[in-house]
């Protein structure tokens, strides 16, 4: 049986206006991403990949269309996204090209912060953060500040932070761009593992053609339109 989509974009458009100029970044995009699925979002620069991620991540409202997450309509034109912070922190995990760790917090604190923000008691948050980091082979780096971690380690801490609240949707924007090919592939393999073990839906914006085999399918954006979508592989839920 096909699981229901975690992320569902329906006819999403995004138009930016500057004076008389109008830029249509997304033009009627409809996408579903299901539990346990890792989807690659490809396309040239300016094709609307990052805009798609901002709208899916509830960071910008669409100009037209709807965004549903876990079966709930959460965003449409004019939506007050600032009021969706709680929803965002519980349902969506973000990973970016740069790890964007808080420099004055240690690795374990960076991860625990995401939990404490969600009202998890400090001690419990730290314990779970340490567990997550240990699971990503960072058990020996718990108390290091970001400046003392390598790029790959920082990105893994960012992954742990994104996972902390056990989101059903993970959105990654060029997560391997700052890493060498080996580290980059390790991170993408981590997403594969997250999708398989945690049954999260993972959308990865990437230019990295070497990692295509790790995706269940890819969608290609050109000039804000979905120009190509590889057929969905059957996803088996645990």
């Amino acid at each position: 049986m096909t699981p229901p989509p975690v992320l569902s974009l329906r006819g999403v458009e995004r138009v930016y206006r500057s004076g008389d100029t109008e830029v249509r970044a997304l033009n009627g995009v409809s996408v579903d991403i299901r539990r346990g699925e890792v989807v690659g979002i490809l396309g040239p620069s300016g094709s609307g990949k990052s805009t798609l991620l901002l709208i899916a991540g509830l960071l910008e409202p669409p100009s037209a269309g709807e965004v549903m997450i876990d079966g709930r309509l959460v965003s449409r034109p004019g939506a007050q996204l600032d009021q969706l912070r709680r929803f965002r922190r519980r349902h969506i995990g973000f990973i970016f090209q740069k790890a964007n760790l808080i420099p004055f917090l240690t690795a374990v604190e960076n991860v625990a912060l995401a939990l404490e923000i969600d009202d998890v008691p400090a001690r419990e948050a730290r314990r779970y953060a340490a567990h997550l980091l240990a699971g990503l082979d960072l058990g020996h780096r718990l108390h290091n500040h970001p400046a003392r971690l390598s790029g790959g380690e920082q990105q893994r801490v960012a992954v742990a932070r994104a996972l902390a609240n056990e989101p059903s949707l993970m959105l990654a924007d060029e997560p391997t761009a700052a890493l060498d090919s080996v580290r980059g592939r390790q991170v993408l393999a981590l997403f594969r593992e997250i999708a398989d073990l945690r049954q999260a839906a993972v959308a990865v914006v990437t230019h990295d053609q070497r990692a295509l085999d790790l995706f269940d399918r890819t969608i290609v954006l050109t000039d804000g339109r979905l120009s190509e979508a590889a057929p969905e592989k059957p996803v088996v839920t645990n």
Binding site: L59, R85, R88, R89, N100, I102, A114, I117
Partner: peptide, 16 residues
Amino acid sequence: LHQIAMLKLIGADNSV
């Protein structure tokens, strides 16, 4: 500002 944006991204309330 960048860290504040990150805090907002991970869902921190304004009170934080």
